[in-house]
Amino acid sequence: MCFNLSKEKVDSLKEYFIKLVKKELHYNEFWALKDINLTVKKGQRLGVLGLNGAGKSTLLKVISGVFRPTEGTLKVNGVIAPMIELGAGFDMQYTGAENIYLYGAVLGHSRKLMEEKFDEIVEFSELKEFIDVPLKNYSSGMKVRLGFAIATIVNPDVLILDEVLSVGDAKFKKKSEKKILSMIEGGTTVLFVSHNAEQIRRICDTAIILEHGRLIADGPVDEVLDIYKKLSE
């Protein structure tokens, strides 16, 4: 995955032509991910480790289809539930109830399914009194709870988690981890990003380490965690 890191963003026609004529249209290339060769088997639970800016989230976004890889290919079998940033597609003017249908549709669910699961979502998110309030009046914790409840209504084939287990208060954290664990028991493939080594050990069976966009370790979770520990010291 390659990004153009131009010093200024050229987004006006005039600038574009002036720079084109002056031949100043050079970009600093930045490879957020390079030479990643990775196979994740069905039912495998993969932890993704790395320091800030190593390319963890970019990797997950490439897998979930937000970015198209600059070079190389990617193949996913089955339905993905991306939980990279919860509540993508929430509309602030919409009420909680309307957002349940909207976000459900963003994740590819039909309105009928959402109607069936509506009560379950409201109950899990503990937002019964606030469900008809516009989302702009929600606290950030409430939004996250709603997003989590909607994103986890179906058991996907591939679950992508980007530090979503570190959201909400301690009580909701426990509840959401329990929910994730119950989903995993059904044989879901998991890709999990976290800085919390204990969490990775609990949830994953294999792990990788990314550094500056490259894959530097790949293997069973305990081995990789030892390498990671040394690396971060």
Binding site: D91, G104, A105, V106, G108, R111
Partner: peptide, 13 residues
């Protein structure tokens, strides 16, 4: 269903 939802959202809002 997303398409229907987006159209509905536009009209509603």
């Amino acid at each position: 269903s997303l398409f229907a939802e987006l159209v509905r959202k536009g009209i509603k809002l």
